[in-house]
Simulated scan of single mutants.
Amino acid sequence: MIVRIMGEGQVRLADSHFAELDKLDDELLAEMEGGDEPGFRRTLHALLDAVREFGEPLPDDALEPSELILPSPEATLDEVREMLGDEGLIPS
């Protein structure tokens, strides 16, 4: 799957990593619903760090369609709330 982190670029991510990412996504959703700004910030960074760690960066000139778009590390709680679907940032 091709994942884009807004403002950073794309990575190719194996499906085998989605269980771990889904746990972080669930935590992020709970923190957002509870208005926990520090928890939200910490978990968003953990989620993006995991994508960077597990993913293989694509060249900057690659024009692959992104199957998943994640917010930038600087995104606010309100900005991410607008991106969320019913299942969080990462659909199950």
Rank of each mutant, 00 (worst) to 15 (best):
D26V: 06
F40T: 05
H45L: 15
P91V: 07
R52A: 10
L63Q: 15
E87T: 08
G35V: 13
L47A: 02
E64L: 14
D49W: 02
E37T: 10
P59W: 05
A50T: 03
E56K: 07
A14I: 00
D15C: 04
E20L: 10
L70Y: 08
P73E: 12
E33P: 11
G9C: 06
E82F: 00
E56C: 09
P65H: 14
L70C: 09
L58D: 01
L44G: 06
S16K: 09
L70H: 07
F54N: 05
S92H: 14
I90A: 00
L21N: 03
H17N: 12
I5Y: 10
S72E: 13
L77P: 00
T76S: 14
T43A: 03
P73D: 07
E74H: 13
H45N: 15
A62Y: 04
F18S: 06
V3C: 14
R41E: 14
D78L: 13
L70N: 08
R4I: 08
P73A: 08
E64K: 10
S16V: 08
R4C: 13
E74T: 15
P71S: 08
L48K: 00
E37L: 13
I90H: 01
V3R: 14
E8Y: 03
G55S: 02
F54C: 05
T43M: 06
I5S: 07
D15M: 09
I69Q: 09
G9I: 04
I90C: 01
G35R: 06
L48Y: 01
G39I: 09
H17C: 12
D60L: 13
L29C: 08
S16D: 13
D49F: 04
R12G: 12
V51S: 04
L21E: 07
L24R: 04
A75I: 12
P57T: 05
E27K: 06
V51D: 02
G34W: 02
D78A: 14
G88L: 10
E56T: 14
V80G: 03
S72G: 15
S66A: 15
E53H: 10
F54E: 04
D25F: 00
L28K: 04
R42I: 07
L13P: 06
I69Y: 01
D15R: 12
A62S: 13
E87H: 08
G88Y: 12
V3G: 13
I90R: 00
G7P: 04
P71I: 10
R41I: 05
L58V: 03
G7R: 04
R12Q: 15
L70G: 07
A19Q: 09
D49Y: 01
S66E: 12
G7E: 09
A30R: 15
P71R: 02
S66M: 04
D60I: 07
V3I: 15
